[in-house]
Design a protein around this nucleic acid. Structure first.
Lengths: 347, 347
DNA sequence: CTGAAAGCGCTTACAG
DNA sequence: CTGAAAGCGCTTACAG
């Protein structure tokens, strides 16, 4: 790489001090005659000068970098989240460092420490999609490092700014909707029991049953791991256990903890020669493109990842700029996409 | 944020010089007695010291940051690419800054300059999915800045390390396969004519026809924009123009420039009451999860985004470390996923 | 085995 | 309107 052009070279070239060049670069007004200014801009152009962000950061103690930590770039919720953060943050001059953890607590911890102490001005960390270890987050927050969590739960996080999704309410509403459509026996395929949001969704499902005077039947509830294959497997087990003599299932709907498992369930249902939604209505969760693309369409729940990302960025940047110290906590409400995707049953 | 702990504090605390602390931190061997070393580690632990990456970068002139620029985080090819880069680069201690351009040349240019001159040690930039402006890339490369391109074409890039996909060959092979299955009239839905890879795929399609003694029929070729809706639209137009009296189409297969458009085409086909693949076989391109998930399955072409990402990272890191100055150019070959997804026609 | 000192490329009080 | 100088927190020849 050809010799680096520094602010000194510009100062020399245009016959001013580095102070003046720096002021111009940072648009500090009123310290420079128009004529001098022009000379400096010319020199910058001529030498093709670009100030070093690193050097600037060392003195300003800000990098304008935001760390975003999540477990899985293939998951559309996190894609949405990233887009939301980016949309908000890029307008304010921040760039994003994206860290993929594969759900590993160790990676999560490494990234957190790595990004926190040095490199970024703040961090947005979402759920690990598994068992969340929050100790490092709490540590950092206590030390005053700007950090915002998304979909992480735990009493220890109560002072940390956070973005949450109403998981329980979401599944309750789905059950209510199904009930109104005449469904009385509903199966459930849960995400991994280590993931808080999976637990909450399952709780919501059970609450929903109770609210409608239905009782939970354990042979209709299976535990998967948020992957498609587990949706297939769980559906197989449920169908094996719950068929009427006539070859028809003794339940009329299945809810899965996410869209991928719901799609897995669909595969099994179709393989068994059953129809969706005529024999079984299927509802996923996440509002992914997949739910719209597959035929027949399945019901799903939109989480609003983009808006959650924007809000997370807003909270974080306020923290960074120490504005607005009021409590930062928001619960995002579900948007149900069920219309036309659920069979209505005469009751 | 509580007062920052610096290397000075550690030096003072453990009664050595900052030089010694620095050496320990950087694992420069043989400059420290075991006993002193222990004192230093203790102090680091006690004060919870984390060295500033920024300060280090200023003196070493390296940030261990790699910029990754692509147009669309929702596109699975770029997700694969990112994963590949990450897998390779993270092992060597690099972190990634991800920049989403939405296909905008201006954003692309801004990110390039922004990342290049200051922040990152090198950049991997993929196609913009539209008309690619390569001038900034060439500039940076000439100045000796490490940069690797993925799926960007143009004579001006001939000296820049690059990762390419055999777009032409891919579609040629698809046509050959379809021909062997007995297909004689094949429709094509192209990506945007501003995108070089779309052009090449279309060329490959036409080459394939020619190689098999078939002639291109313009009423069977439509231009979309890589989005699903355009696949639907194009398919509609083709069907409107090319139906036999009996309500059956006068072609037996359609190839789309990517999976999303292929899925759009499927929707239209099914809406018209036609069957896949019995009436029309469908082939996309990208090897996305979508192609496997939708029913009926459609044919597709795997690009190998993860491997391309790994190779890109390898090239880039070699450039950064000035190793291995031989020509860096590789053409990735397609892997066809057509088995069992194409109708065989008696001829 | 250890350290004093220069320097990476900026910004910013302070003085004029 | 302008600049000399200190300093951000490290690394690294150089000297011992």
């Amino acid at each position: 790489m050809s010799k680096k052009v520094t602010i000194r070279d510009i100062a020399k070239e245009s016959g001013v001090s580095t102070t003046t060049v720096s002021r111009l670069l940072n648009h500090v007004e009123g310290y420079c005659s128009k004529e001098t200014e022009q000379r400096v801009w010319n020199a910058i152009e001529r030498l093709n000068y670009h100030p070093s962000k690193i050097a600037r950061s060392l003195v300003t103690q800000r990098t304008n970098l935001i760390g975003v930590i999540f477990p899985d770039i293939y998951n559309s919720f996190f894609q949405d989240l990233f887009r939301g953060v980016e949309e908000y943050a890029s307008k304010l001059g921040y760039q994003l460092i994206l860290c993929n953890t594969d759900g590993s607590s160790k990676k999560e911890r490494d990234y957190l420490l790595n990004l926190a102490e040095n490199l970024t001005d703040g961090i947005i960390i979402s759920t690990s999609n598994g068992e969340d270890d929050n100790t490092t987050i709490v540590d950092l927050h206590k030390r005053g490092f700007p950090i915002v969590t998304v979909e992480r739960y735990g009493e220890e996080l109560k002072d940390v700014p956070r973005i949450l999704f109403a998981n329980r309410e979401a599944e309750e509403q789905v059950v209510n909707y199904l009930y109104r459509c005449g469904h009385r026996r509903i199966a459930y395929i849960s995400g991994p029991p280590t993931a808080t949001n999976a637990i909450r969704r399952l709780e919501g499902f059970k609450n929903g049953l109770k609210q409608n005077g239905l009782s939970a039947d354990n042979s209709l509830i299976m535990t998967g791991n948020y992957k498609m294959e587990s949706g297939q497997d769980c559906m197989r087990k449920i169908l094996d256990a719950c068929m009427h003599k006539g070859g028809k299932p003794d339940f009329s709907a299945v809810i899965a903890g996410n869209d991928l498992m719901a799609i897995g369930a669909c595969k099994t249902i179709l393989e068994r020669g059953l129809r969706i939604p005529d024999d079984i209505s299927v509802v996923g969760c996440d509002g992914t493109m997949l739910a719209d693309l597959i035929r027949p369409k399945i019901g799903t729940i939109r989480l609003g990842g983009i808006d959650m990302g924007k809000k997370a960025a807003e909270y974080l940047i306020n923290e960074i700029r120490s504005q607005n110290t009021e409590e930062k906590k928001v619960l995002f409400q579900p948007e149900l996409l069920l219309e036309g995707r659920i069979k209505s049953i005469e009751t």
